[in-house]
């Protein structure tokens, strides 16, 4: 198993994390904290000596600032494929190069466990037809699963018609949905585990909080 990087989430899943050779999708609106889950996943890998790659359409400096904001120290950083500030530049118009660079980085670290976190799923889905992206991600995930790797992808749910995300979710072994929920007068950030490889359906909502001291996940008591 591969730790999520958030002990309370590992505990809730009851499996000490995500399955080996799996692909996890986190869906949610902008600003809710999806990235934080990705940062802690990468951070956990760096501590354990895994090879970690962060593929992002944002500049490296932006992501590092965000990481600091959610309490991740900058002593260990992953390899980058980013729009700027990284040796390998990420260009959203060149989806072939993105896929090639991710697979190449994973292949060069074949002897180690590989963790890849990326936020390019939504941009590529917006910029390319769904049919071609389905094949593209299907191929990429299949190639990565040939070796000991876990891919963690983020998707913005306000950017796609529902059928697009439903289609893409089929390709992933785990799907986590993060969202704000209205309960009377209060607004609560909750997530649901829609599916997770190796687990029976995990019903219900889980409350999460992200702060500069870390991330905490608890079962939601209404």
């Amino acid at each position: 198993m591969v730790s999520t990087g958030v002990p309370s989430l590992d505990n809730l899943l009851g499996t000490d994390g995500y399955s080996d050779r799996s692909a996890i999708l986190v869906v949610g609106p902008q600003g809710i904290g999806k990235e934080a889950l990705g940062y802690w996943f990468v951070r956990s890998g760096l501590i354990q000596g895994d090879y970690c790659l962060y593929a992002t359409h944002r500049p490296v400096s932006d992501v590092l600032r965000d990481m600091k904001g959610v309490g991740i120290p900058g002593d260990r950083i992953p390899d980058w494929i980013a729009s700027s500030g990284s040796p390998t530049r990420l260009d959203l118009r060149d989806s072939t190069a993105i896929s090639f660079n991710i697979k190449d980085a994973a292949h060069r670290n074949k002897g180690r466990r590989v963790r890849i976190a990326t936020d390019v799923l939504s941009p590529l889905l917006v910029l390319n037809p769904l049919e071609s992206m389905y094949g593209y991600w299907s191929q990429l995930l299949s190639d990565l699963k040939q070796q000991d790797s876990v891919l963690f992808a983020l998707a913005e749910d306000g950017m796609h018609p529902p059928n697009v995300l439903t289609t893409m979710e089929q390709l992933f072994d785990g799907v986590i949905e993060m969202r704000l929920y209205e309960e009377g007068l209060s607004i609560t950030p909750l997530f649901r585990v829609r599916k997770m490889l190796g687990l029976p359906p995990l019903h219900g909502y889980f409350r999460f909080s992200v702060s500069s001291t870390g991330m905490e996940v608890t079962a939601h008591v209404k």
Partner: peptide, 22 residues
């Protein structure tokens, strides 16, 4: 500002580790 959903009723929140249900 951010899409806001409503919590579905009659949902049991289950922790796999402890087996407890809320």
């Amino acid at each position: 500002l951010s899409p806001v959903g409503r919590v579905e009723k009659d949902v049991v929140s289950t922790s796999r580790a402890s087996g407890s249900a809320v």
